[in-house]
Design a protein around this nucleic acid. Structure first.
Length: 271
DNA sequence: CTTACGGCCTGGGTGC
DNA sequence: TGCACCCAGGCCGTAA
């Protein structure tokens, strides 16, 4: 995306009939034509396309915000290419090609960000786990009473960590998902810091975890799923200790962990 | 304020 | 052929 989109203008916008995942479909059709892509950035789990208005210039900033959810895919290609099922947005570019958004489950999200909205939407997001230093990471983790699993997945605490990478990071750091952030030792926080960055960097390098048939913008499958140590390995042997991987619901999400490597916290008093 | 939890959205995969 | 069930991220309502 970063290689093909900057400099391209959006000529036309077409949407499918199922636009319930788009915040304001009419605003896309109204605002996008006649804009040029300035930059493409990742912000947590969001993709932010910074746009400049080519013709009508009121100086106001505008951006296109895209969240792929679980099954969202964006591809830039020939407008004549066959249209995959569940393709819901078509942005015709000035070179004749098309940016298409395809999303089987429609758990993704698309919206326009006008001047002030950028801060409203992106402002509440927490630190980027790949940019934060260890001291800051420690400060964030140890100042919250929530379970570490909930903390890592909360986009207001850190932006961009989801369920798979939370479980893989906690396994690598040998920390049980139900542990409290405030109760982690100095050594545990350090292990977790390194685990999170290691897992994310490796996942990015391997283009993510293709659980079914996900492909990235270049049509490539991710390969990180090969590296999964606990995710969706319930009942299988732990690669580290040979114990049995278990699954439990923590923070409302399916959580996989090795009960031997990741010791459970002391039972908390009932509420 | 923070945290926890249940439920809803969607549809492919799975198991009966 | 059918059908109940599971699950994912975000979000909302509710409760403590």
């Amino acid at each position: 995306m970063r290689l093909v989109l900057p400099g391209r203008s959006i000529v036309e916008v077409r949407l499918s009939a199922k636009t319930d995942f788009i915040d304001d479909p009419a605003s896309l059709e109204r605002e996008l034509p006649g804009t040029r892509v300035k930059s493409v950035e990742r912000y947590g789990k969001f993709l932010v396309l910074d746009l400049e208005r080519v013709a009508g210039s009121d100086g106001g900033k505008i951006a296109l915000l895209i969240h792929l959810g679980m099954t969202g895919q964006i591809v830039v290609g020939s407008a004549q290419a066959p249209i995959p099922a569940h393709t819901h947005a078509f942005l015709t570019l000035d070179d004749g090609r098309e940016l298409r958004y395809t999303d089987i489950r429609r758990f993704g999200r698309i919206r326009i960000l006008l001047d002030g909205e950028r801060e409203t939407v992106l402002g509440p997001l927490g630190a980027d786990p790949l940019e934060v230093c260890e001291e800051k990471f420690r400060e964030i983790i140890t100042s919250r009473g929530a379970r570490i699993k909930a903390l890592l997945m909360d986009q207001r605490v850190f932006r961009g960590i989801g369920n798979i990478y939370t479980d893989e990071s906690l396994f690598r750091a040998r920390i049980h998902p139900k542990r409290l952030g405030t109760k982690l030792s100095e050594a545990e926080v350090r292990r977790l810091f390194r685990a999170v960055q290691g897992v994310l960097n490796e996942a990015i390098r391997l283009k993510g975890s293709s659980v079914s048939d996900y492909v990235d913008a270049e049509g490539q499958r991710g390969e990180f799923q090969i590296k999964h140590r606990v995710y969706q390995r319930e009942g299988k042997k732990c690669f580290r200790c040979g114990g049995v991987i278990r699954r439990a619901i923590v923070a409302g999400r399916s959580s996989f962990f090795c009960p031997k490597c990741q010791a459970a916290p002391r039972a908390r008093r009932k509420s």
